[in-house]
Design a binder for these strands. Structure first.
Lengths: 155, 155
DNA sequence: TATTGTTATACTCTATAACTATA
DNA sequence: TATAGTTATAGAGTATAACAATA
């Protein structure tokens, strides 16, 4: 047999599948690739991609509360607990009491947290530069602004 | 108190967060929105988004095998079993024996399967038209082609 | 030796609902 | 009444590893 069975099925090239015309499907495929490659780039015992995101906001907005952070990231408060637990266990940030509201806690990045974040951000930039090398810088900017437009419409 | 606590944190507008400059993060946020909206559009007892994708390929490439389908969708063979089980339970396709290879099975869409698929595809188009109304048709095309470029680089 | 379909299993990420302690 | 943090739980979706049947 010189050709495998599935060569008989038209795929990416030639035949225009319905799915390829849908933003949702293309979004999913691209997301899976970028996400899993970024996870690998962050290392076996490195941060998860979501912990990276949370740390990013915590470093840039020190003393933010978990509720505010969950709103910025667009996830539920309950989901953030495990993420902050992980970051705290790694010594990258602390939950500290706030004067004036004993319900809330301020997320305070440690020195190690800021350092780890800068390293991870550098990793992220290198990972995107390499993985998205088929896109020009201008195309990457267009892509980002189109993706952000989708979010703007969110209710 | 006239302003809530998190209004003190710059968010989408004004402050340029690190995350907003990353394709990966923007991809994730957009994907979550489109995915969950599409799920709702498909209805409570409707197809899952992944079953919709599998059915789409099965209808367009009748008699495709599960292995070939999993390769086209970019998922593992093992993950496809439950999806095909579901589609078969709904009476939308059949697993039928192939002459010449007793390992493989051909996926054959039923009449109901083809009809359900056309309805779901119509739903998908309406869902995208409404959810992505802030993007022009040209922008949607650019977005799709940029997302496909990411996939082209896949190893 | 390799491939097809399958099972068992685990992992990641997410959401909902309910609770407590505060406000 | 409403909010902050938390727990318990469940639901999608994914992957890896192994197996039997077949090529």
């Amino acid at each position: 047999m010189t050709k495998s069975n599935d060569d008989r099925h038209p795929d990416a090239e030639g035949f225009q599948q319905d799915l390829e015309g849908l933003v949702g499907y293309n979004l999913k495929r691209a997301y899976m690739i970028v996400q899993s490659d970024f996870r690998i780039a962050l290392g076996v015992d490195g941060l998860s991609t979501r912990a990276f995101s949370a740390l990013s906001i915590a470093v840039q907005f020190p003393n933010i509360t978990q509720s505010a952070l969950s709103r910025i990231l667009g996830i539920e408060r309950s989901g953030l607990v495990a993420i902050v637990d992980d970051l705290e266990a790694r010594g990258l940030l602390l939950r500290s009491r706030i004067a004036g509201d004993r319900r809330a806690q301020a997320l305070v990045p440690t020195v190690a947290g800021k350092k780890s974040y800068q390293a991870a951000l550098d990793t992220a930039h290198k990972h995107e530069k390499s993985l998205l090398s088929s896109l020009t810088a201008a195309e990457r900017e267009v892509l980002i602004s189109l993706l952000q437009k989708i979010r703007k419409n969110e209710d």
